[in-house]
Amino acid sequence: MTETTQRPLRVLAAMSGGVDSAVAAARAVEAGHDVTGVHLALSANPQSFRTGARGCCTIEDSRDARRAADVIGIPFYVWDLAERFREDVVADFVAEYQAGRTPNPCLRCNEKIKFAALLDKALALGFDAVCTGHYAQVVTRPDGARELHRATDLAKDQSYVLGVLDDRQLAHALFPLGDTATTKDEIRAEAERRGLAVARKPDSHDICFIADGDTQGFLAGHLGTAEGDIVDESGATVGRHDGAYGFTIGQRKGLKIGTPAPDGKPRYVLDISPVDNTVTVGPAAALDVTALTAIRPRWCGTAPAASGRYTAQLRAHGGETEVTAEVGDGTLRVAFDQPVRGVAPGQAVVLYDGSRVVGSATISATERATASV
């Protein structure tokens, strides 16, 4: 049984001002739920307008959400969660980069804001569930337990960024778009049929609180300039940087290396050391990872067995790879059947059993294959 066959619920629909959340709210109403719309004000000083697909949470977005709620015919409120967002998402993002790690703020927002701060407030006010426009499915088993599954349309699947949700949060989550095989164009056509003005509004991309897309500039504004060396695998200096925090494992562009590699091939970021402010670069083959260790696992339901076979996803728009996972005391070790590249501490690894999301954890260390240089 999927979420669409549940009894009528009191639902709080998180409305970003985009087409997906608007259609999700409309579908929740159509399913017979008692729906109230809410827009989360996540910026203390929001811009009036966003530029194309950059950013979100502007005053324009709030107004678009309100207009969509009016058309759907549901009550609408704006809730100020800017301080909580700054502490739990933005400050965490900056601190992770400062420590040489690569965080995913969307996972943190889902864990700490949409399905923690927002959900807690919703439950305190008597709501049964929080509804969002994510493309994922919550399936209810015969015994009443709920599972998180990939969306029917794998091209739009967003279960990776929801892999942080535990069983309590899943019990109060509603994703009306997840079990439909409609394309994004069909979602926009549905919004037009419903009279929603956001039908042709561009999707927001990149990091919502970095509206201009300049992550390195954003970090420099918070952490300042800290010049250091870019070195090769032998330790020889091949360039300079303005802050090690501005790099991520696997990065190729923007390295500003003055000395070419002996073989003439491109070099990639292999390691980031905040202790001595050094960035190490080398050949692509040196990025091959055979296993990783992750911390702070969060299970979407019952914790898995001590050891098992799964598939893993390492980034929001990445593919799956077959793995063996071993669960320890607050840790997770994942061994890959075939080496993978571009795995950075701070990222999330999400385990799947078929379409079911088993859970996620934060990568803390990697084991690399011996690279031929």
Rank of each mutant, 00 (worst) to 15 (best):
residue 190 E to L: 15
residue 190 E to H: 14
residue 190 E to N: 12
residue 191 A to E: 10
residue 192 E to F: 07
residue 192 E to L: 15
residue 192 E to D: 11
residue 192 E to Y: 09
residue 193 R to L: 12
residue 193 R to C: 12
residue 193 R to A: 14
residue 193 R to P: 07
residue 193 R to H: 12
residue 194 R to S: 04
residue 194 R to T: 03
residue 194 R to M: 15
residue 195 G to K: 10
residue 195 G to S: 06
residue 195 G to I: 04
residue 196 L to C: 08
residue 196 L to F: 12
residue 196 L to D: 05
residue 196 L to S: 09
residue 196 L to W: 10
residue 196 L to R: 12
residue 197 A to G: 04
residue 197 A to S: 14
residue 197 A to N: 08
residue 197 A to Y: 05
residue 198 V to H: 08
residue 198 V to K: 05
residue 199 A to H: 12
residue 199 A to G: 02
residue 200 R to C: 01
residue 200 R to S: 10
residue 200 R to P: 00
residue 200 R to Y: 05
residue 200 R to L: 07
residue 200 R to I: 00
residue 201 K to N: 00
residue 201 K to T: 02
residue 201 K to Q: 03
residue 201 K to H: 01
residue 202 P to Y: 03
residue 203 D to L: 06
residue 203 D to M: 06
residue 204 S to G: 09
residue 205 H to Y: 01
residue 205 H to D: 02
residue 206 D to P: 00
residue 206 D to T: 00
residue 206 D to I: 02
residue 206 D to Q: 10
residue 206 D to H: 06
residue 207 I to T: 07
residue 207 I to G: 00
residue 207 I to Q: 06
residue 207 I to H: 02
residue 207 I to E: 03
residue 208 C to N: 09
residue 208 C to V: 08
residue 208 C to H: 07
residue 208 C to P: 00
residue 209 F to S: 00
residue 209 F to T: 01
residue 209 F to A: 05
residue 209 F to N: 06
residue 210 I to D: 04
residue 210 I to V: 15
residue 210 I to E: 09
residue 211 A to C: 05
residue 211 A to T: 10
residue 212 D to I: 06
residue 212 D to K: 14
residue 212 D to V: 05
residue 212 D to M: 09
residue 213 G to C: 11
residue 213 G to D: 07
residue 214 D to F: 15
residue 215 T to G: 02
residue 215 T to V: 15
residue 215 T to N: 10
residue 215 T to A: 14
residue 216 Q to Y: 07
residue 216 Q to I: 05
residue 217 G to P: 11
residue 217 G to M: 13
residue 217 G to K: 14
residue 217 G to R: 14
residue 217 G to S: 09
residue 217 G to N: 11
residue 218 F to K: 13
residue 218 F to E: 08
residue 218 F to Q: 11
residue 218 F to Y: 15
residue 219 L to R: 07
residue 219 L to V: 04
residue 219 L to P: 08
residue 220 A to R: 15
residue 220 A to I: 14
residue 220 A to D: 08
residue 220 A to M: 14
residue 220 A to G: 11
residue 221 G to E: 11
residue 221 G to F: 07
residue 222 H to M: 07
residue 222 H to K: 15
residue 222 H to G: 04
residue 222 H to C: 10
residue 223 L to C: 03
residue 224 G to L: 00
residue 224 G to R: 02
residue 224 G to D: 03
residue 224 G to W: 04
residue 224 G to K: 00
residue 225 T to N: 01
residue 225 T to C: 03
residue 226 A to N: 10
residue 226 A to C: 06
residue 226 A to P: 00
residue 226 A to E: 10
residue 226 A to M: 11
residue 226 A to Q: 11
